[in-house]
Amino acid sequence: MSVTIEEVEAAAQKHPVAPYLRMDRMPHIWCPTCGIGTVMKCYAQALEEADVDMDKAAIVSGIGCTGRVAGYMNLDAFHSTHGRAIPFATGVKLGRPELLVTVFSGDGDLSGIGGNHFIHAARRNMDLLVILVNNFIYGMTGGQNAPTTPLTAKSSTMPFGNFEEPFNLPHLAASCGAVYVARWTCLHTRRLTKSFQEAIDRRGFRFIEVIAPCSTLYARLNRLGSGFDLMRFYHDSAEIKHGADPKEVGIDFQDKIICGKFIDEDRPAMHERMDAHYKKVLGDKYVPMPPEGGWLHE
């Protein structure tokens, strides 16, 4: 049976998450069996299920494969510089506090070059939903070692295997003060969507790590088979342990992946704490920035 391009395009427009995406930018750039598209779809679905006002939602990405997500979401979207998505998003949030601001980027972007911003945004409990897609490698630049590459795994800059300790990202986020910390793989589509939805409704620094296969580079360099083999591996080796101690959820090469919700607390976000503090110490003299932002108009 043959289908025309027009039929494919018409079908795409009817896709349930089409209103949440820039369909005029499809097809996306990601490789077949890459997990990022699935994570993006889950995020779009979570926006729908959480009934988010899309006109009041902004998304910020850095650079890299996952950094392209902002460009495909039908929101106010910022494709910023490498590693700077979190401070850029901090500006967007503080400039117009009413916005729901999501940072959507990769492991290299957020925990490598952007690591300093990550820990400080978690410390000050910035009101950001941070979605980090971890594929254990720098994909866009061709498979170099990442701060998340497991010990002994090969990368193009660790051709004899990685000998540096990787980050355990949920532990990093939790120890810096993140109020919501979860990890899923991109195969947990229903749980991941629910987790996004839950995190959208929380306040403060919310961190969700999503493990996703990179068949083009990570699987190839490590002879892990096809993208489908990698997906099956992630499916079979994921173990759900809600409330697990984040310290215990580090990932070894081709070993089990502990998933679940590890932290879920309620603490005022940075801008809420600022408001409350100034109200207390300055009283009537304090003039808060209005929710629609600090812009001037006639």
Partner: peptide, 12 residues
């Protein structure tokens, strides 16, 4: 990065 981001909300 933060001032570039905040400027996009219209804030100076």
């Amino acid at each position: 990065a933060a001032v570039v981001g905040a400027s996009w909300t219209g804030t100076k």
